[in-house]
Design a protein around this nucleic acid. Structure first.
Lengths: 233, 233
DNA sequence: GATAAAAATTGACTTAAGTCAAAGCATTGG
DNA sequence: CCAATGCTTTGACTTAAGTCAATTTTTATC
């Protein structure tokens, strides 16, 4: 009986045999060949996975077609559990998608899929605070994830993403498309993973192309569609 | 009384006024000027911080002196809480250091320092499973953190780090300094944030310098000190 | 308001790493 | 055992972004 294997999963290590059997009976066992996709990042979230055998890669496809791998997952580790802690309501309503793609990279990868409802009922005893902490950590994970994604793009793109994010955050502070950098240009350069000179030149290039206008820390966005294009292309 | 401010901290939002007062009385209030260091990543861990006012940057100093910022932290958010969930024993014994550096980037940054013991006694009600989940998330956070760090290094360094990590992981599989890549070179390239050709050339360069010898997925480490040097310089 | 100090910009140069195209190896299945 | 497909390597070329050095602009302080 495979349910005993679940004891090797850190998260479940202190559950009773009965509880393990129940989880097992409520979950799906799936087998994948090498190179088979497990899920895409466009797909609605339907639960997290435990690797019993084989290996899985978690990755993003960059716009230019390259793939950027975030994790390899080995037996008795879980993946795609983070969305469970992000926004309970949305997960329950199937309004969430997987945060990345996953593919089996071994011939005989065996997985267990744990559905959200099964997991939430387990978690039911430990409420409030612990859940909040987890939620906070999940947010940071998500943030770092995005950061990594940004770091493999070129500087104009990273800058465009930052400006657009800033515009969303500051929403309402200025009527028009103006944003104000909340940090020094030196700090912004370091945040974008580059150096002062390059940031300066990149800002200038965008200004010469009439996409933005820079006045110290105040930046007028003169051509929003163009900026959006840079941030996605 | 400042203890009421703590209700704005997500993690504490459901605690009673008495509990908040207790936390406040057991913690230290600190004020920093712009550019003042809050902690270094070489310093023993002594608790996590809550920003009441101002702004803090969390960053790593790269070997060439550049700084790479991981987060900005704004009022009512916490930072340096992750070590609390990593290895309880080590935190308690002061064997942990902060995972990054932090500096105030505003004139009048006010912070509260929460010591581990205070926090753990709060958490005491929610044990076992929730704690394990948190611990799992924390591990991934740490992993992503390292990944980001790697991405701002050049490819030879990223590769050297990977090989050394692999050597540690596989410890004992081979007697000598040999390692076996557990993934395809294509996947390794994507994991290192580069492309197949560059990985191939980088391996060759290391081989020409007699630091390693590549035979398919088997890699003999012929000059460990040199590899270590590349991974740190 | 003058002067010092810090922050930001600019130019000339270098280099790491990506692109494109082609060839060479190796697995694997019929 | 040999096609056939998928990995891996190599070469020639391009380009984004970093370095170094100097200057200009902005900000703070007496």
């Amino acid at each position: 009986m495979d349910s005993g294997l679940l004891k090797n999963v850190n998260m479940f290590s202190e559950l009773s045999d009965d509880e393990l059997k129940k989880i097992y009976s409520l979950s799906s066992l799936k087998t994948f060949g090498k190179g088979e996709m497990i899920f895409f990042d466009t797909e609605p979230y339907s639960g997290f996975y435990i690797v019993l055998e084989g290996c899985v890669k978690i990755f993003k496809i960059l716009k230019d077609g390259r793939e950027h791998i975030l994790h390899f997952v080995y037996p008795f580790n879980t993946f795609a559990e983070v969305p469970l802690f992000e926004q309970y309501d949305k997960v329950i309503k199937d309004e969430f998608t997987y945060p990345a793609n996953s593919m089996s990279i071994e011939r005989n990868t065996r997985l267990i899929l744990i559905r959200p409802a099964v997991f939430y009922s387990l978690l039911d005893k430990n409420k409030s605070m612990s859940f909040k902490i987890i939620s906070g950590l999940a947010k940071k994970l998500r943030h770092l994830n995005k950061h990594i994604e940004n770091l493999s793009a070129d500087i104009p793109k990273r800058l465009a993403c930052y400006l657009l994010e800033l515009k969303t955050m500051e929403n309402g502070k200025f009527k028009d498309g103006t944003v104000e950098l909340p940090i020094s240009k030196h700090d912004l350069a370091a945040y974008l993973g580059t150096i002062d000179e390059t940031l300066s030149r990149t800002l200038k290039k965008l200004q010469d192309r009439e996409i933005i206008e820079v006045k110290g820390k105040i930046i007028f966005i003169k051509n929003l569609p163009a900026l959006k294009k840079i941030s996605t292309e």
